[in-house]
């Protein structure tokens, strides 16, 4: 009885937590409200909800981008940042002085000013078709957004949207592994030895996130040392 009661309580707590999570607006630490409104509307156009399942907004991609930009990646982790700065050829890759955080800040400011200048209502209030047309103009046009070529910003936004949609949920996007369920990617699961030669099989196992404990069969060899101070290995032939 006690067990059943506890289970019932746990279930209802769980349900309550789910409900409140669904209702609670995302907390942004990088984006200001105006920027967040643009990002939320834009990612939903880049990967919209449809009959196949949720889009980038519902998957939590804006939170993913917010976390990335407020952390080490946003600050220019692994980005060589010494000058001098030249535009260079397209084959030479990214050559702007901006960190990803700076790039987004400048570009979003530029977009805000662009809308103000044109006397248009903000991006988030436009019809879907108009939003798509604006995103297309960023992707292909020559607009400069407070020093950031709109193409470069669009490329960053699209690649971060795809990253957030398909990366492990521990990073804040791909909520409940929705994208993985949609395409049939099993995630961090680690062992297909017994299925790789079952050609064409339908793999139906639920996906696994990094946040779950290992469910795959992981073989740790007891005779192989982990480091310098481990015991000697067995001599073979």
């Amino acid at each position: 009885m006690a067990g059943a009661a506890a289970a019932a309580t746990a279930a209802s707590t769980h349900a309550m937590r789910d409900a409140s999570a669904a209702a609670a607006p995302p907390v942004y630490v990088f984006f200001n409200p105006e920027e967040a409104a643009f990002i939320e509307a834009a990612v939903e156009r880049l990967i919209p909800a449809d009959e196949n399942g949720p889009g980038a907004l519902e998957a939590g991609v804006p939170s993913f981008i917010d976390k990335q930009l407020s952390g080490a990646w946003g600050a220019g982790e692994r980005l060589y940042r010494s000058g001098p700065w030249h535009e260079g050829a397209p084959t030479q890759g990214y050559q702007l002085p901006f960190t990803p955080a700076e790039l987004f800040r400048h570009a979003l400011r530029g977009i805000r000013d662009d809308f103000r200048q044109r006397g248009s209502q903000p991006f988030g209030k436009l019809a879907a078709q108009e939003q798509d047309a604006y995103l297309k103009s960023l992707e292909t046009g020559k607009l400069e957004l407070d020093g950031v070529p709109s193409k470069v910003f669009f490329e960053s936004l699209l690649s971060m949207t795809i990253e957030g949609f398909f990366s492990d949920p521990v990073y804040g996007g791909n909520k409940d592994m929705v994208s993985w369920r949609m395409i049939g990617f099993p995630g961090a699961y680690a062992n297909y030895y017994h299925t790789v030669d079952q050609h064409g099989m339908q793999f139906t196992r639920a996906p696994m996130s990094l946040s779950e404990t290992g469910r795959g069969v992981i073989h740790i060899h007891p005779d192989i040392p982990a480091g310098q101070h481990a015991p000697p290995v067995k001599k073979g032939k």
């Binding site: 297909y192 030895y193 795959g216 060899h221 192989i224 067995k234 073979g236």
Partner: peptide, 11 residues
């Protein structure tokens, strides 16, 4: 060299 390896799991 006496080092033992395992079969690949196709992860």
């Amino acid at each position: 060299e006496g080092m033992t390896m395992n079969a690949c799991m196709f992860c």
